[in-house]
Design a protein around this nucleic acid. Structure first.
Lengths: 243, 243
DNA sequence: AGAATAGTGTCTATCAGACACTATGCA
DNA sequence: TGCATAGTGTCTGATAGACACTATTCT
């Protein structure tokens, strides 16, 4: 019972000899395509869960030469799957999943990330040669229990985080282009929250952001069936918030 | 550059052969002692950072027989250090730290947890035989750069989470006894937020919780220098929220 | 009685939500 | 000219914060 006495602190004594789990980084990447919220999925080519859809991921690079941080690994995953320069992609660590039997082969921890890809860049993934092995899937997914491993739970957690942060953080801007109309930003909120947002009230909240200098009018207008809308862009100071 | 082609998905092919990092679980455990917010620290008996104070932790138990989940590992850490039954301790995963050089010996990931220990149980840790190797240290710490590894950053993150969730979650109840006066709960909020809370306004917010049935009056009163206060306890339904 | 804390009342500013209304550009 | 969408105005109810006030119990 008192076996903890042997190694009371975080990383003691024979740390090199202690058995270690495999560590993967999996990413729930979202974007907007055709006015739909979509998540990036890959089809598994190998067992286990061969043929199932899964969140893209990779084993963390560990070893004498190629140590990468968790953030760097997540960036690498997004870059590899989309061909995007990751500088325009918002990335945020989500949660670490580590149930003993989540992978049938062996003990695997998954450090998960939330990624937001601007819609004007998301199209590139279609040009990939492995086109039918990777796709932006519209949400909500039909078969909600369809993903490999525990990726359903990861996806749920990612959406929850997204919804939770939308109101008090500028996270929504990561899903519109560099310049955007209020209508476009409102669509992002409506898709994430799943409920229509009152145009007037939404605009008033947006107006406060203008007053605070968070957002500034930009050149150009949006072509619509009727009156064109003013477009805006993030102020330089605020753009730093979304690395 | 295109090395990702070899293993495009999360856990592919030679997962058993891929080099693996060590994985530790470190816990930032808070409690109230002498009307002060305190964090549980242990003094490191071995190199690296020998003699420095650190958050308590343990290597994750991995292997054929003793697979434990991340949550179970965090519970085990708290139990080992405090002697408490972990059922009364609030536990929540915080963040996973994985910078390549955070441990000089080798690559070590730290999955961190926030723990809240009810004040009436915290005293037990003093009775431990290793009394001068472990203690509840008052916050804020004097030497804010004094902890081993990157534990300063972990502690900062834990306090941030605590502050952030205080307003919209019942997390504060985890730092009072089973029955408590409004004054006691207010003290918890004041210590976490670092600012005095208006007694009247605080009470009004509390009143809403009573109206919603979240909290109910309990037997007994609190002995003070003047008028004794009513004590309350969480309603049975609400108590489930704090496992 | 006096001190101290528990607990109440009230005023103001802010904000979300509902919804009616005006303005502008396209077909 | 009509229509669809952009954008404004207004009302209501909920809430945070500041602060004055009353109530109760201990010494």
């Amino acid at each position: 019972m008192k076996s903890a006495v042997r190694s009371p602190s975080s990383a003691e004594g024979s740390i090199e000899d202690h058995p270690r789990p495999a560590v993967a980084v999996d990413v729930a990447a979202f974007t907007l395509v055709d006015s739909q919220l979509r998540v990036l999925l890959v089809r598994r080519a190998r067992s286990p869960h061969r043929g199932s859809w899964a969140l893209p991921g990779s084993l963390l690079r560990v070893g004498s030469k190629v140590e990468e941080s968790l953030d760097a690994c997540a960036r690498r995953v997004v870059e590899a799957k989309t061909g995007l320069s990751p500088s325009t992609v918002y990335l945020e660590q989500l949660y670490t999943f580590g149930e003993p039997r989540r992978d049938p082969r062996m003990r695997v921890l998954s450090v998960t990330y939330l990624a937001l890809v601007p819609p004007d860049l998301a199209g590139r993934v279609r040009a990939s040669p492995t086109v039918d092995e990777i796709q932006w899937r519209a949400l909500p997914l039909r078969e909600s229990k369809g993903l490999a491993f525990d990726h359903d739970a990861i996806l749920r957690q990612a959406l929850e985080r997204l919804r939770g942060k939308l109101d008090y953080s500028p996270i929504g801007f990561a899903l519109v282009g560099e310049s955007f109309s209020i209508r476009e930003l409102r669509l992002v909120h409506e898709l994430i929250l799943g409920t229509p947002q009152d145009p007037g009230n939404f605009r008033r909240r947006f107006q406060r952001m203008i007053d605070e200098g968070l957002v500034v009018p930009a050149q150009g207008r949006r072509q619509t069936a009727s009156r064109p809308a003013q477009v805006y862009r993030l102020a330089r100071a605020a753009a730093q918030v979304l690395p």
